Simulated assay, not measured.
Amino acid sequence: MYKLNLNTQNFLTQHWQKSPLVIKNAFTDFVDPISADELAGLACEEELSSRVIITKEDGWDIIQGPIEEYDQFGDDNWQLLVQAVNHWHPDSVSLVEAFRFIPDWRFDDLMVSFATPGGGVGPHIDNYDVFLLQGEGTRRWKVGARGNYSPRGGDTHTALIDDFEPIIDVVLEKGDMLYIPPGYPHRGETITTALSYSIGFRAPSQQELMSGLADHLLDTNTGSQRFISANEPEMPASLSIDHQTGILDLLKDLLAQPKHYQQMLGQLLSQNRFELDLCEPEQDYSTEDLTSALSEGAQLVRIGGLKVICLEGDTQSRLFINGEEFQLNIDQDKLTYIANQMNLTNDKVLELTGSAEMTRFVLTMLNLGYYYLA
């Protein structure tokens, strides 16, 4: 279990999405949840997103995973990055749980890096919030002020920028952490061979929201209302202000209806960008299998990275899980409990499965591989 040494309420009020912050000794006596060898093993897998970044005099080379051989990179000036480690390495899940003072729907993934001296990423700007936690070894981080920076080499398709004047210049040691909000340029350089953890949080862009709304309307065969005008312009080629605002009012009307935006938001925000390590059984669980397991004391455990979301003020009784909607005719307290708990104790599962509907739900979760019995 990882306990964060941070007044979270003060942090949310003073720094969250506002200003960067160095948090020395964020975790006392920090123990790396994963070893360098285990990380290298994950980087061999096709299902995971991984890459090696090599630091050169004139820039950086990127080699996309899977990565199986490391001797070719030498002893310094490179780092391995593996995304969504919390999906595939159970021991890392408890580290992520220390950051659940930020809502689950914002959480993106736990990226872990192994870096040799001199290894790092050039100056860049991210469009998401990130906590940079230091494990073994030491890294130096520089953070600049928000501003207008030129993309490196004029390439607008990269997050890399020209260098910046730092407002923070700090060496992180084991257990230290740096928080960086969106829009602040930063760069890291490894001093001694290091393991580092990047805990990232995202919010949807306007593009993603519009795409999600369009998908929802197509899937539900709704949103077919067309524009009706009260007057027409005198000039045939003119699109009048009245017509422009009237057409856009069709979107406003849709977005004012909970039946549209609640389902869209639940499905969109419960999805993951990275593949999950589903725990699908070889043969579907039956009611008898579940009853037998619970009688032996089994509990229900959520797989790493799975998002379970309930909407405050939802017009329906449901949960959104991994982009899917699950209708459940139970009270809001039980919905909220299921969504908030990573593990459901044996007593709680026995209580929930007292109804046939909840038994079907638990079996569905097990057979989809979203939960497993432990």
Rank of each mutant, 00 (worst) to 15 (best):
M177P: 03
F131D: 00
L311G: 02
Q341Y: 02
S113I: 06
L195G: 03
M210Q: 13
V308K: 01
A237P: 00
Q262A: 06
G323P: 01
S270M: 09
I167D: 05
D331F: 10
H87C: 04
L269G: 05
L268E: 10
T156P: 05
A298G: 03
Y285V: 09
H260F: 15
D169R: 04
K24C: 03
Y261L: 00
A98H: 03
T156F: 06
Q72A: 07
L81Q: 04
T116G: 01
M264G: 10
V170P: 01
G41T: 12
L133M: 01
M1N: 00
D126C: 05
P66L: 07
Y2E: 01
G188T: 09
S196C: 08
C279D: 13
S92H: 03
L217N: 08
S224H: 13
Q244Y: 09
L132H: 04
S35Q: 06
H124C: 01
T116I: 07
G118Y: 04
A43Y: 05
P258H: 03
D108K: 12
F320M: 05
P281W: 12
A298R: 10
L319V: 10
S224K: 11
T116Q: 12
L366R: 01
Q83S: 06
Y128D: 10
T336Q: 14
E288T: 14
A237E: 14
L290T: 11
T336C: 12
I338E: 06
G120Y: 02
C310S: 12
L373Q: 07
I67Y: 10
L278C: 05
A339E: 03
P33L: 08
V301A: 09
L265N: 00
L110V: 05
T193K: 14
T315H: 12
F131L: 01
T359G: 01
E173L: 13
D219T: 15
Y337E: 15
W78R: 02
V31K: 13
G188R: 07
H157N: 14
V82F: 04
S19D: 11
I168R: 00
L373N: 05
A159C: 05
I62Q: 11
I167W: 01
T190L: 08
P33V: 06
V82Y: 04
M111R: 07
E232L: 15
I161K: 09
L350F: 02
L12A: 09
G41V: 02
V143N: 03
T8K: 10
V31S: 09
E45Q: 15
K252F: 12
S270V: 11
Q271R: 14
W105K: 11
Q17S: 08
G135T: 03
A159W: 00
A145M: 05
E275R: 15
A145W: 00
L218C: 11
R302F: 09
C279R: 14
E275F: 08
L209N: 14
T190M: 06
L294C: 07
D129G: 11
